[in-house]
Amino acid sequence: MKKVSTLLYIAFFMVAPLVHGATHDNIRWHNEAADTTNITNLLIKATNFGASNPNELIEFIGKEFIGTPYKGGTLEGKPEALTINLEEFDCTTFVETVTALALTIEEGKNSWQDFANSLETLRYRQGEVNGYASRLHYFSDWIVSNTHRGIVKEVTDRIPQSDSQIKTLDFMSRNRSAYPALADSADYAGIKNMEVGFRSHRFPYIKSARLTAKQVMGALKAGDIIALTTKTNGLDVSHVGILVIEKDGPHLLHASSKEGKVVIDKLPLTEYMRKSPNLTGIRVIRLQDQ
């Protein structure tokens, strides 16, 4: 990955003041001035890092957010809009933001508008905001949609000792009262219609007990997107993060509700899984080389 030239670096900041006031019609900003500046700075810094592959890039960008506060529910609001918030994350918005930044760089682009397009592409079915049900709420849906568009690839089934399970994904419709947006009958119908495509959905995973195997650990890479599968009825994945390799093995870099911020978890991944009895295993996703 080539470093940004001095001229390009200057161009970023010459353009930035001119575009801060411009917004896409369906962007909901947390703090437009701060977020557009942070996006631009991160794109420059991560490009200059010179990663040799997308995994290195994702790991680098993810670590830039260590210490960022945890906050859930930041995407909720009427009407549905592309929400950009680099100052607060839940586990999914953290992974999406990091991945969108990496995708923008991999595509050779360099503006906050390019990042916004990447984020919308990742977060919404067919890459476009079209109501609450167009958001990729289930992580299986997120994987399927973004794999179909050639953005990511799931490598879980390529890892030794991988297995598969079948679940019907209907947690949202069966727990309608937990999702304020589903009080709207049209949104509820849209979610129900989406869930039809995930009846008896088969997906690969690596059981928690097998994560201690050397051949499994050896197949994981720093910068992998890790989705943690769950026992919860009707739900496929309950948490996501990014893999980092520490001296004692793989750890999860994630927006932690327990810690209240983005952290590299103090527990190795194997121990984290062992102490979380509702988790069944992991799925492994990588950004495609562009």
Score class of each variant (00 low, 15 high):
residue 1 M to H: 10
residue 5 S to H: 01
residue 7 L to R: 10
residue 8 L to S: 08
residue 12 F to A: 02
residue 16 A to N: 06
residue 18 L to S: 11
residue 23 T to A: 14
residue 28 R to F: 04
residue 32 E to N: 13
residue 34 A to P: 00
residue 34 A to Q: 12
residue 37 T to G: 00
residue 40 T to V: 13
residue 43 L to V: 07
residue 44 I to D: 00
residue 45 K to A: 15
residue 46 A to Q: 04
residue 49 F to R: 12
residue 51 A to E: 02
residue 53 N to Q: 09
residue 56 E to R: 10
residue 58 I to R: 05
residue 59 E to A: 15
residue 60 F to K: 05
residue 62 G to Y: 01
residue 66 I to G: 03
residue 69 P to H: 13
residue 70 Y to I: 07
residue 75 L to S: 03
residue 81 A to P: 00
residue 81 A to I: 00
residue 84 I to P: 02
residue 94 F to R: 04
residue 94 F to I: 08
residue 95 V to C: 04
residue 97 T to V: 11
residue 108 G to Q: 05
residue 109 K to W: 02
residue 112 W to A: 08
residue 112 W to F: 15
residue 114 D to C: 02
residue 122 L to N: 11
residue 125 R to Y: 06
residue 132 Y to F: 15
residue 137 H to N: 12
residue 141 D to G: 12
residue 142 W to S: 04
residue 144 V to I: 14
residue 145 S to K: 05
residue 147 T to L: 00
residue 148 H to E: 13
residue 149 R to M: 11
residue 149 R to P: 00
residue 150 G to P: 04
residue 159 I to A: 08
residue 159 I to V: 13
residue 162 S to P: 05
residue 165 Q to Y: 00
residue 168 T to M: 07
residue 177 S to F: 10
residue 188 Y to G: 03
residue 190 G to N: 11
residue 194 M to V: 13
residue 197 G to H: 14
residue 201 H to Y: 15
residue 214 K to Q: 13
residue 215 Q to I: 10
residue 217 M to C: 08
residue 225 I to L: 15
residue 225 I to G: 00
residue 228 L to A: 09
residue 234 G to D: 06
residue 237 V to S: 04
residue 241 G to S: 01
residue 244 V to I: 10
residue 248 D to T: 09
residue 250 P to H: 02
residue 258 K to I: 12
residue 260 G to P: 07
residue 270 T to V: 14
residue 273 M to E: 02
residue 275 K to C: 05
residue 277 P to T: 11
residue 278 N to M: 11
residue 280 T to M: 12
residue 285 I to F: 12
residue 285 I to W: 09
residue 287 L to C: 08
residue 288 Q to P: 01
